[in-house]
Design a protein around this nucleic acid. Structure first.
Lengths: 335, 335
DNA sequence: ATGAAAGCGCTAACAC
DNA sequence: GTGTTAGCGCTTTCAT
């Protein structure tokens, strides 16, 4: 039922190649014929079939974006920014989700490969080797993951982790727990490394717990472990986990921030809603989404383009952290 | 660089149509040749180009899903369910977002039209006429919107609204405010209609406020209005707004649920996190997503299929509602 | 400036 | 069971 280039050609009395030019190279066609073609196209409701065009040009006008979990509030701002950036450049974004399943990542890349000009891989969990292999099939830009030789946009969570540790130390905390995220997460590793180094620099021995499920439930699940270690503060892989630990601690009768301080990561919308308000490291996710799109589109023009981009993060202090208290610090009892 | 059907044909010494059949009708090819073709295809990393196939078959294997705002926690569960349902049937889902802009809806449908076998329109804000026009260009299934003659899956929010009103009346509330959602929202209209009827049935005159932005900020913005009307309870269009009103009321020195009770809609993940826990009407969003996908795929097989589906909703009572108090009920002072 | 013809990767009759 | 041929909707030389 939708009309094709042939219908327009017939109805406006020109050859299909003229219609084609009218849309893909307007300046190459007489302005008179052009407006006539445009008019009949309009009246027939004709729109060029991008998929058919892609068969020849190799350009689909689409880009893929693969994320782990749409329900994780970390992603929506990134997705929104990427989508609007892409639309501004007349590209569509197709968002797909792996549901935290590393196996699904590869399938999704394959499924998208032929329908897009490139794929944005956000926080992938798969191996470097696999990523490199896939990058042979379709241009890839990584977000929150560093693979040598592939373009990527990174957020300097290490810096945020250092700020978080120093913030806690400044408040008098000594037993700091670090809650890791999912296995394979570059971000989780960077946070842990930086936090551990910062702790050691202050002669502290951090308690590392993980990997964990990066969700509220994941946070609740480790609350008991945190309590058992008699940590007086916690740095969680993300806001979801931070909220989960707080919940879990509360139900053990431990209050935040009076007894234990908690720092999250992401500064998601949740951080300003939950009680207490979350002290958290803010990530420039919208900027990351925009840059990633731009890097990907540049990649088509210029294969050499694009290296690594590192974006800054920053600790935002709110209500979930406070001076080291005494009530929960059973470490004193144990000595 | 990616290999085509011709490469495989050459490498395995058969004609391209045999390769084609190997993938689209395996039973029509000798099992011996089939495995040989499959093997060389594997070694060449060949994967059929779905877009090219679609040019002939008219079947892309993709479905589009258009939502208003990925950051609104109402959508992610629906998206996830739709995505997994689709993948189970070997379809990809392309998610696109309008950012609450009604103009973007039409553009997006057009952008997707040729690349998908159908589009799921979730909570569209555009006119019935436009929706019907678009349904001529690409199969459409509506979610949270009823247009005569188009398949849709609806959630019976009216029922939930009645439950909410009766819950509040049971707690002794008399001045009930109803916060509408965005202009053009079918859900908002249904909630308002049902809530108003339920109030009138109890000889109450509800305070209707709206339309409003369906976000936390939108909720905060109406808090003052709610206070000015000296409402003792509020039914908000969604959880986001409910949380916003609570925030706004708090900053006016009004406590929830002691002074004012608040009911939300959606039972999103937020409802179990925010303080107080939200009393809210739960929507079967995952079921809606699954059903919508199935209806859309059925539509391809059988044009007559699919009418309207109505899913049930249910009030979940938590901490944001309580007995009608006295402190904020300045209506007594005014009498 | 426009038309003719070839072909992108693939499927679908139709022969053999 | 497999090869032949035509063609999906479109772009792109190459002529004219």
């Amino acid at each position: 039922m939708p009309s094709t280039i042939r219908d327009v050609a017939r109805a406006s009395g020109v050859h299909i190649s003229t219609v084609s030019r009218t849309f893909s190279a307007p300046h190459m066609v007489n302005s008179e014929t052009r407006s006539r073609v445009l008019a009949t196209a309009e009246s027939l409701g004709y729109r060029p079939n991008r998929a058919a065009r892609a068969l020849i040009t190799g350009q689909t006008g689409n880009v893929g974006l693969i994320v782990a979990d749409i329900a994780n509030p970390f992603f929506p701002p990134l997705i929104k920014a990427a989508q609007s950036q892409a639309r501004g450049r007349d590209y569509n974004i197709f968002v797909a989700e792996t549901d935290e399943d590393p196996m699904a990542e590869e399938d999704l890349v394959h499924a998208l490969a032929k329908q897009v000009d490139g794929v944005l891989l956000c926080s992938p969990r798969m191996s470097n080797d696999l990523i490199e292999k896939l990058s042979k099939e379709v241009p890839l830009v990584l977000i929150n993951r560093s693979v040598p030789s592939l373009p990527c946009v990174l957020m300097d969570v290490g810096q945020g982790a250092r700020q978080a540790v120093n913030h806690l130390i400044g408040l008098g905390h000594t037993r700091i727990a670090i809650l890791g995220g999912p296995r394979g997460s570059w971000t989780s590793r960077e946070i842990r490394k930086a936090a551990v180094v910062a702790c050691r620099a202050a002669d502290l021995d951090p308690i590392v717990i993980g990997p964990n499920q990066p969700t509220v439930d994941g946070g609740m699940a480790v609350a008991e472990h945190v309590a058992r270690e008699s940590a007086c503060s916690v740095i969680a892989y993300n806001d979801l986990m931070a909220i989960g630990v707080i919940e879990g601690l509360n139900s053990l009768g431990i209050r935040v921030p009076e007894d234990v301080s908690v720092v999250g990561f992401d500064d998601s919308a949740l951080a300003r809603i939950s009680r207490p308000r979350l002290t958290t490291v803010s990530n420039p996710t919208p900027a990351a989404g925009r840059m990633a799109v731009d890097m990907l589109l540049q990649l088509s023009d210029d294969r050499r383009a694009a290296g690594q981009v590192m974006l800054q993060t920053e600790l935002v202090v709110r209500g979930s952290t406070g001076p080291a208290g005494s009530s929960s610090d059973t470490s004193t009892e144990r000595r």
